[in-house]
Write a protein that binds this DNA or RNA. Structure first.
Length: 914
RNA sequence: GCCCUGAUGGUGGAACUGGUAGACACGCAAGACUUAAAAUCUUGUUCGCCGAAAGGCGAGUGCGGGUUCAACUCCCGCUUGGGGCACCA
C-alpha cells in the first residue's frame, strides 16, 4: 500500500467534520487551555505561505495540549468590519457585506485544506448584529463608567453623580479638565445640559472636541497608531490635524495599570518595550514662571528641574493660549506671521523637514530664583499637546535647546563645568552642578528632588507625571463599522437600550456633509438624531476572545461562569504589527470589564508569541532596453537593461524556465535569451510577499503536490516560528521523504503490512523514549523545527533497528499527531487501534529507558578534546583521576607529566588541566 | 539619534543552565539498482595542510580584546542586517 496523501487527507478532513471532532464542550471538570490566533481580516488577496505560519504553530500546540488531557479552546473567526472593504465598495459599488462574505468563503477553503483543528461551531464575524450588539453594549458600559483615581479602577458613573450632589467634585478631579472645580451647591444649580457636559468629561468613552488626525483622502479620522510619518497606515494618504467632535476612549486613565500589567504577562521584551514607549511615562515637575510686567504665570513641564539655573529662555508652542496675551505690540506682526507659517505647514512637511524655526515674543519671564529676565520664544518644536505646551530651555543640557540657541544666537549658560564643551549639549545626570546657587556641588540626579521640594515650598511648582499616550480616537466617518448606540437629544448623548442598533443598508458609501460619515445621508437615521459616526476597526477586536467562550449567548456578551472557566487566553499568536493598537486596546477593555466585575481577570493574554514574517524571495530578469531580449544575470553588465519581476514559480532556484517564461504572458512569447553556460540565471532579492512582485507562493499548490501534512511540517521545519525569513520551497522534498519513510515502517510495497505484535526490545524502547522526551520538550518550548528533526531521527533509527512493533509504532503516531494529523490518524486505524488518535493519551515518558550504566565521555586536555572514555555513571572524582592516571592514551598526551587538576562535570565531560 | 533583535558551512538552521560546534534537512559529489528516467538506497561533504588509506595536525561561530580548566554562549569596544520610536521637554 502506498502513501496516498491526497485520499488520506480528504478522507479524514471529511470524517472529522462529520463527527464534529473539533467541537469543544464547556466541561468544567477538565483542566482548560485556551489557544488563540489573531483573527484575520478577510481581505480579497487570499492566503500566501506567510499567513498560515502562526496558525500551524497554534494548531500543533492546541492538538498537543488536547493529547495531554486538556480541554482545549481553539477557535477562529473574522474581523470583518473595516476600511478596505469600504474602499473597495466605493470603487466598485459592491456592498461590503457581499465582498466580505466572498472573501471569507475563499479564505475558509484555503484554511480547510491545511487541516486545522478549529472549532468552527464557535465562529463569528465582528460584523454580524448578534456580535456587535455586545460591542455596542460594552461601549455603553464604558460610556456609563468613569475612572476612580483613588480606587484606581473604573466605576459606574451613577455613583459619581451621587458624590457630586453631596460634595461636588472635591474627591474626583476631572480628567477632561483638570482645573474644573464645583461644589455640591454648584451641582444642584446646574441645568441638565450642564450636568451632562460635565459628566461627559469623566466618562471612559466620551465625546469631545479635539485635534484629530484627519485623512482627507479616506474621509475619516484615524487613531495615532494608524498614522505613520504623517501618512495614513492604510493607503499612505496625507493626514492633517483638525479640530472635530469625536468619540474617544479614556485609555490614558489606564496608563499606569497598562504598564504594571506588563510585568505579569509573557510578552517578548520587544513587545513590552514598544508598549512602554507608546505609553511614554516620564517623571518631572510642572513649574510656574511669572511673566515680567504682567500677572500671567507661565507653566512649564520639565523632567530636569535640577537644571533650573541653566535656563536661558522659555519656549511656548505656537498654539499656546498665552501667546495671544503676552506679546507686546511691537512684536505682534512678527509673531502672527510665524504662527501663520506654522499653520500652513502640514504634519508631513514638519516631520520631513525638521527645520529649526521660531520667533521671539518680545516678552520675558522672571527666573524664580535669580530674578533674571528670561526671554520667551515660540517654536513648533514645542508641542501643544504634551505636558503644558511650554518648556524651559537649557541649551547646555538638551540637544534641541542647544541647536535652537545656536541658531538664534542666544547666549548659553554652563552649569556643568568641563562636562560642557560648547560644541554640543550634554544631557548627563551624573555631573556636579556649578553656577547654580544653592545647588552648587550637588550631583544633578540628586538635585532633582531638592529643586522640586523648593518649588513646592514656594508654591510655584509640583511633582508631575506625564504620558505620551493620548486618549484613543474612537469614531470614524465611515459606513462599514458598528453604529454607536447613541441618540442626541437636545445636544445630550443618550444611550439606546434596544440593542443591537443595526447598521442600515445603503447603496452609496460617500461621505456625509461637513465631515460626517455616510450614515448622515440616511434620512431614517438622521431623523432620529442618531450618531452618524461608526466605531473603528479595533472596537470589535478588543473583546472577541471573550465571545468564543460563549458565542451564541443572546442574554450576555459571555456568561460569567464560562469566562471564569476558560479565563485568560493561555497562548496568543499573531504578528508584531498590533503591538500598540489591538494589543493595547484589548488590554484596556479587559481591565474595564474586570473593574465592572463582568469578568474575573484583568489581562486578556497570558502569553503572546509573535510569529515572524515570511518574506518573498523575488526573481528578476534583465531586459535589454528597447528590445525583447533578456540577458542572464552574469552578463547583464555588458548591456543597458531594466530589471523586471518574474513569477518565482517558473524559476528553479535562480535558473529561469525559459519555455514557461515565454508561455507566462503574451508579450514574452517571442522573448530571446542571452544565456550563460546554457542557462538563464535570474537576479534575486528579499522583499515583502506581494502579488505585484510575483513572489507569492500559494499554500494550495504545495498542499496539492505534497499534502497538508508535509506542508505543515515543512513550514515548521523552516526555522523558529518567531523568526522572519524568506520563503524557499527547496527542501520541502526532505520533509515529504520523511513521511514516506515513516509510511514504510508500516507498509512495504511488495510485502504489505509490516507491523508485528511482539514486545519491544530495550533498544527500541530507548529510541522511542528518547524521542518522547525530545519532542515533548521541543513542543512545549515552541521549538517546532527541532521537533521535526527529532521525528526524522526517530524514523531512521526505528528503520535501522528494523522495528515494526505495533506498540512502538502506535506511540510514534501519537507523538506525530499534532504535526501531521492526517497520516497519523490513517495509520492509527490501519494498525487497528481503537477510537480516534485525536483523543489518544500522549505517551508517558519512562526515564528508566534512558538510563545508562556508562557513557562515552570526551576527555579534554586544557579544554582541547583528545579522546573518549567509557565511564560508569556513578564514578566519583577519585575514580576519574585513577582512570586518568592509568589510561595510556591520556598519559601519552600528558607526556608523563603530572596534571594540576581534573575537572569532572558528571554527564558532560572531563577536562584535565596541566 | 534612541531602544530592541539578529550575525554559525554552498543554503535553511541545531547546540536549552558555559562542557565533543555544525544535529536535522537542502544542495553537491561518488556509487548501487535501472535499457533509460523517476523513485529508492549507500557513502562523503566546515576550511587548510599531511597521508594510498586508516588516520593525523592546524584554524574556525561578523571583527578586536578580556574572564575561565573550558566561550557560539559571559564581559568590554567595534562592524553590519532586520524591526520599533523619533522634536514627548
Amino acid at each position: 500500500m502506498e502513501y496516498n496523501f491526497r485520499d488520506i487527507e480528504k478522507k479524514w478532513q471529511r470524517t472529522w467534520t462529520e463527527i464534529g471532532a473539533y467541537r469543544v464542550s464547556n466541561d468544567f471538570s477538565k483542566p482548560k487551555y485556551y489557544v488563540l490566533d489573531m483573527f484575520p481580516y478577510p481581505s480579497g488577496a487570499g492566503l500566501h505561505v506567510g499567513h498560515p505560519l502562526g496558525y500551524i504553530a497554534s494548531d500543533i500546540y492546541a492538538r498537543y495540549k488536547r493529547l495531554k488531557g486538556f480541554n482545549v479552546l481553539h477557535p477562529m473567526g473574522y474581523d470583518a468590519f473595516g476600511l478596505p472593504a469600504e474602499q473597495y465598495a466605493l470603487e466598485t459599488g459592491q456592498h461590503p457585506a457581499v465582498t466580505t462574505e466572498a472573501n471569507i468563503r475563499s479564505f475558509r477553503e484555503q484554511l480547510d485544506n491545511i487541516g486545522f483543528s478549529f472549532d468552527w461551531s464557535r465562529e463569528f464575524r465582528t460584523s454580524q448584529p448578534d456580535y456587535y450588539k455586545w460591542t455596542q453594549w460594552i461601549f455603553l458600559e464604558l460610556f456609563n463608567s468613569y475612572f476612580d483615581r483613588k480606587a484606581g479602577k473604573a466605576r459606574p458613573i451613577a455613583g459619581l453623580e451621587v458624590a457630586f450632589s453631596m460634595e461636588g467634585n472635591e474627591g474626583a478631579p476631572c480628567p477632561g479638565n483638570e482645573s474644573l472645580r464645583f461644589t455640591s451647591a454648584d451641582w444642584a444649580g446646574y441645568s441638565a445640559r450642564e450636568r451632562a457636559d460635565i459628566l461627559m468629561q469623566y466618562r471612559l468613552a466620551y465625546c469631545g472636541y479635539g485635534e484629530v488626525n484627519w485623512c482627507e483622502a479616506l474621509g475619516t479620522v484615524l487613531a495615532n497608531d494608524e498614522v505613520i510619518n504623517g501618512l495614513s497606515e492604510r493607503g499612505g494618504y496625507p493626514v492633517v490635524k483638525k479640530k472635530l467632535r469625536q468619540w474617544y476612549l479614556r485609555i490614558t486613565e489606564y496608563a499606569d495599570r497598562l504598564l504594571e500589567g506588563l510585568e505579569r504577562i509573557q510578552f517578548s521584551e520587544a513587545m513590552k518595550e514598544m508598549q512602554t514607549n507608546w505609553i511614554g511615562k516620564s517623571f518631572g515637575a510642572n513649574l510656574f514662571f511669572n511673566v515680567a510686567g504682567s500677572t500671567d504665570r507661565l507653566e512649564v513641564y520639565t523632567t530636569r528641574p535640577d537644571t533650573i539655573f541653566g535656563v536661558d529662555f522659555l519656549v511656548l508652542a505656537p498654539e499656546h493660549e498665552l501667546v495671544g496675551r503676552i506679546v507686546p505690540a511691537d512684536h505682534q506682526a512678527a509673531v502672527s506671521a510665524y504662527v501663520d507659517y506654522v499653520n500652513s505647514r502640514s504634519e508631513r512637511e514638519r516631520m520631513a523637514e525638521k527645520k529649526i524655526t521660531g520667533c521671539f515674543t518680545g516678552a520675558y519671564a522672571v527666573h524664580p530664583f535669580t530674578g533674571a529676565r528670561v526671554p520667551i520664544w515660540i517654536s513648533e518644536y514645542v508641542l501643544a499637546g504634551y505636558g503644558t505646551g511650554a518648556i524651559m530651555a537649557v541649551p547646555c543640557g538638551d540637544e534641541r535647546d542647544f541647536r535652537f540657541a545656536q541658531h538664534f544666537n542666544i547666549p548659553i549658560t554652563n552649569i556643568i563645568g568641563d562636562a560642557y564643551t560648547g560644541e554640543a549639549a550634554n544631557p548627563t545626570k551624573d555631573e556636579v552642578l556649578s553656577n547654580s546657587d544653592f545647588l552648587n556641588g550637588t550631583v544633578m540626579r540628586d538635585a532633582i528632588g531638592v529643586v522640586i521640594e523648593r518649588f513646592e515650598a514656594m508654591g510655584i511648582g509640583r511633582r508631575k507625571v506625564n504620558y505620551k499616550m493620548r486618549d484613543a480616537a474612537f469614531s470614524r466617518q465611515r459606513y462599514w463599522g458598528e453604529p454607536f448606540p447613541i441618540q442626541w437629544i437636545d445636544g445630550v448623548a443618550t444611550p439606546l437600550h434596544d440593542l443591537p442598533l443595526e447598521l442600515p443598508f445603503v447603496e452609496k458609501y460617500g461621505p456625509g456633509p461637513e465631515g460626517e460619515g455616510p450614515l448622515a445621508n440616511v434620512p431614517a437615521w438622521t431623523a432620529r438624531h442618531l450618531e452618524t459616526n461608526t466605531m473603528p476597526g479595533y472596537a470589535g477586536s478588543s473583546w472577541y476572545f471573550l465571545r468564543y467562550m460563549d458565542p451564541h449567548n443572546a442574554a450576555a456578551f459571555c456568561d460569567r461562569r464560562l469566562s471564569d472557566y476558560w479565563n485568560q487566553v493561555d497562548l496568543y499568536i499573531g504578528g508584531t504589527e498590533h503591538a500598540v493598537g489591538h494589543l493595547l486596546y484589548s488590554r484596556m477593555w479587559t481591565k474595564a470589564l474586570f473593574d465592572l466585575e463582568y469578568i474575573g481577570f484583568d489581562e486578556p493574554f497570558k502569553r503572546l508569541v509573535n510569529q515572524g514574517m515570511i518574506q518573498g524571495s523575488s526573481r528578476f530578469v534583465y531586459r535589454v532596453r528597447g528590445t525583447n531580449r533578456y540577458v542572464s544575470l552574469g552578463l547583464k553588465d555588458a548591456y543597458e537593461t531594466d530589471a523586471l519581476h518574474v513569477d518565482v514559480n517558473i524559476v528553479d532556484g535562480i535558473e529561469l524556465d525559459t519555455g514557461a517564461f515565454r508561455r507566462w504572458r503574451p508579450e514574452y512569447a517571442d522573448a530571446e535569451f542571452i544565456l550563460e553556460d546554457g542557462k538563464y540565471l535570474c537576479g534575486s532579492e528579499v522583499e515583502k510577499m506581494s502579488k505585484s512582485k510575483f513572489n507569492t507562493v500559494n499554500p494550495n499548490a504545495l498542499v496539492e503536490r505534497y499534502g497538508a501534512d508535509t506542508y505543515r511540517m515543512y513550514e515548521m521545519f523552516l526555522g523558529p516560528v518567531e523568526q522572519s525569513k524568506p520563503w524557499d520551497t527547496k527542501g520541502i522534498e526532505g520533509v515529504h521523504r520523511f513521511l514516506r519513510k515513516l509510511w514504510r515502517l508500516f507498509y512495504d510495497e511488495t510485502k504489505g503490512a509490516l507491523w508485528t505484535s511482539g514486545a519491544a526490545t530495550p533498544e527500541e524502547l530507548k529510541v522511542l523514549h528518547k524521542a518522547i522526551k525530545k519532542i515533548e520538550e521541543d513542543t512545549e518550548r515552541f521549538s517546532f523545527n527541532t521537533a521535526v528533526s527529532a521525528f526524522m531521527i526517530l524514523t531512521s533509527e526505528l528503520s535501522d533497528l528494523d522495528c515494526h512493533k505495533k506498540d512502538v509504532l502506535s506511540q510514534t503516531l501519537i507523538l506525530l499527531t499534532p504535526y501531521a494529523p492526517h497520516v497519523a490518524e490513517e495509520l492509527w486505524h490501519q494498525l487497528g487501534m481503537p477510537g480516534s488518535i485525536l483523543d489518544a493519551a500522549y505517551p508517558v515518558l519512562n526515564p528508566a529507558y534512558l538510563v545508562e550504566s556508562s557513557k562515552l565521555y570526551p576527555i579534554a586536555i586544557n579544554g582541547k578534546t583528545r579522546t573518549e572514555l567509557d565511564i560508569a555513571l556513578d564514578a566519583s572524582q577519585a575514580d576519574i583521576e585513577a582512570l586518568i592516571r592509568s589510561n595510556e592514551v591520556v598519559q601519552k598526551w600528558l607526556d608523563g607529566k603530572p596534571y594540576k587538576k581534573v575537572v569532572y562535570v558528571p554527564g558532560r565531560m572531563i577536562n584535565v588541566v596541566v
